[in-house]
Design a protein around this nucleic acid. Structure first.
Ligand SMILES: [Zn+2]
Ligand SMILES: [Zn+2]
Ligand SMILES: [Zn+2]
Ligand SMILES: [Zn+2]
Lengths: 171, 171
DNA sequence: AGACGAAATGTAATAACATGACAAGAGAGA
DNA sequence: TCTCTCTTGTCATGTTATTACATTTCGTCT
């Protein structure tokens, strides 16, 4: 998690490893979150909003303590529960996801989908892409039904090398 | 991870949540590990063997420090690296798996298969079943190919309630 | 407006998980 | 036997996450 953490939209790959207008992407996500919380009667407080903003800065997973550092810089509290509570809220309401492989968190790339997506994690540049359709999840439910196991949550993560990094190493 | 950690083969569910002869299961696994290490020129040292035995005690995931406690009881070293190194060995050679969701480890239920299975984790009794065929993994590889992402490892875990615990709560 | 209860935050302390670094020992091959 | 490599012992430290409790904020009811 000591990798550079600056914005990288300019160099190309994040958000599904595809180039995109990042400021738009970020504004849209925040607006969607605002709307969503309004609608559901959730309290989108300053810390919670700030944490989502931090996560939206880049499409990478950030550890709770990295988030905490940024919160401190912006004058928020700096004890672990501050970050963990905000993250719990965001995760519980589908605005962020936890990447178990990394013990880290990422902003949701599309708050308008049926949740529990799959993630693809680049071990070189740390970018994380959210795969929404996820036929893998369906396959998993199939298996579970056969076993009599009642699934409450699925964790599907692939670790490897993203298209952008493949190109770099080939050159 | 503070749940009771005693053997439970008698009460039924683990190992794919199915009843089975646990002492046979354990002996077979150790024998297979012996053979495997012999064959591949790996050094199946006392600590490594002991850690595998500990994991085989029950089909539950155990944290590294829980393992460490048991190692201490049996007169082995008790510093974290002792356990982590043995676990690294077992995982690297397919004799154990790490459950990312729990930050814990489990003995492999079948050393004779092509690895990276899916896991089903019971949140009530902490039992973990290893799903070998895993069509979910294939589905994931499909998606990755389409994206140009090169998968090196997959993590597929389902959290929920096992058949045995479903029965208990219904009664 | 004032009182109240629920939700959110501030803060200190601690638990749980994991690695780095280096010295000492055991094993395999020249 | 020498030497190289892998393994183990041990101390120290780093990273991730939770418990506990006091305080504040906010909506709701009177
Ligand atoms: Zn999402
Ligand atoms: Zn990459
Ligand atoms: Zn296995
Ligand atoms: Zn169960």
């Amino acid at each position: 998690m000591t990798r550079e953490t600056a914005k990288v939209s300019a160099e190309g790959h994040p958000l599904g490893f595809a180039q995109h207008d990042h400021s738009t992407c970020m504004n849209d996500a925040l607006a969607a979150a605002d709307a969503r919380c309004e609608e559901d009667g959730l309290r989108f407080t300053p810390v919670r909003r700030k944490v989502l903003e931090i996560l939206l800065q880049d499409h990478r997973a950030l550890g709770a303590y990295a988030i905490l550092d940024k919160l401190r810089e912006d004058g928020f509290g700096s004890q672990p529960p501050i970050a963990y509570r905000a993250l719990d809220f965001l995760v519980a309401n589908g605005l962020a996801h936890k990447i178990e492989r990394l013990n880290a968190f990422i902003a949701c790339a599309d708050t308008n989908h049926a949740h529990t997506p799959a993630f693809m994690i680049c071990r070189l540049c740390n970018a994380v892409a959210e795969e929404l359709s996820s036929s893998a999840r369906n396959a998993l439910h199939e298996v579970a039904r056969a076993t009599g196991f009642k699934i409450e949550r699925t964790i599907i993560e692939a670790e490897g090398i993203c298209p952008s990094c493949i190109n770099k190493t080939e050159s």
